[in-house]
């Protein structure tokens, strides 16, 4: 069974972390993954850096620019991840933008992911209609779960549609924002968490964007299955170095 599906069945709230591959240094990828697993993180999004990350705030933009400057490429990331399943057993998701995947070749990309043992893909700018028309069959052939996003503005009808198309979890964007917001959650956000929980979707939800500490993690997982932290983690390793993963995870739970 796909590791994401297995993880979603566990009776606990899931903590997932995002980091940009190739940052702070080009060869930090495996070390960061190992530390994340040892710190008890449930799932990881490995960010494939892109020159023009539209959905991201300044922190992830800057880490992406630095990673590209360090020489990170799609092939480089895959070669770093070869053999990773000998030691890393938690679900791994590749998160990025669609153009690098398209240039690598969608089928070749998916095939490499399967060989490595990647469980899922998040491509925010690959929309549902394009995915279903062109790429769904390829993702499925290589056993990859495609993760769809919803936001507070997504209509109920659209949510139902995305839920039906989803085979893993739904990535719930906490508010109308790019990544890295730190203002905490408003009452409107809590209402949104409750509203989505009450829809009884077949897919469980994991909340992302704006989760930075224990308080926001708890708020996000009151009604949902888990939460993803990205920018706050990147800020932490920028400040404390690539070997400081455990000291960040300890502050969350």
């Amino acid at each position: 069974m796909n590791r994401i599906k297995q993880k979603l069945q566990e009776d606990k709230k899931l903590l997932s972390l995002y980091f940009t591959a190739g940052y702070p240094a080009i060869d930090d990828t495996v070390s960061i993954l190992t530390q994340l697993q040892e710190s008890g993180v449930d799932m990881v999004e490995i960010g494939l850096p892109f020159s023009d990350p539209l959905a991201d705030g300044p922190t992830i933009q800057e880490s992406s620019t630095a990673a590209l400057h360090n020489g990170m490429t799609t092939e480089k990331l895959f070669s770093q991840l070869d053999g990773i399943r000998e030691t890393i057993h938690i679900p791994l998701i590749v998160m990025g933008y669609f153009n690098p995947m398209l240039q690598y070749g969608v089928e070749k990309f998916c095939k490499r992911c399967q060989e490595i043992g990647i469980d899922g893909i998040i491509m925010p700018d690959l929309p549902l209609a394009e995915y279903e028309a062109e790429y769904k069959a390829i993702f499925e052939k290589y056993g990859l779960i495609n993760v769809f996003l919803i936001t507070p503005q997504t209509s109920d009808a659209r949510i139902q549609q995305l839920d039906a198309a989803s085979d893993g979890f739904i990535y719930m964007v906490s508010s109308a924002s790019t990544t890295g917001g730190t203002s905490g959650f408003s009452n409107t956000t809590s209402d949104y968490f409750e509203r989505i929980a009450a829809m009884n979707l077949k897919s469980q939800q994991i909340v992302g964007f704006g989760i930075s500490n224990e308080e926001t993690f708890k708020a996000a997982t009151t009604h949902q299955k888990g939460a993803i932290i990205g920018s706050a983690f990147i800020k932490h390793i920028t400040k404390n170095g690539a070997n400081s993963v455990a000291s960040f995870v300890e502050t969350i739970r």
Partner: peptide, 11 residues
């Protein structure tokens, strides 16, 4: 052409 946009822009 088409519309390769993140879900945040869909509405």
């Amino acid at each position: 052409g088409g519309a390769f946009i993140p879900e945040m822009l869909y509405p």
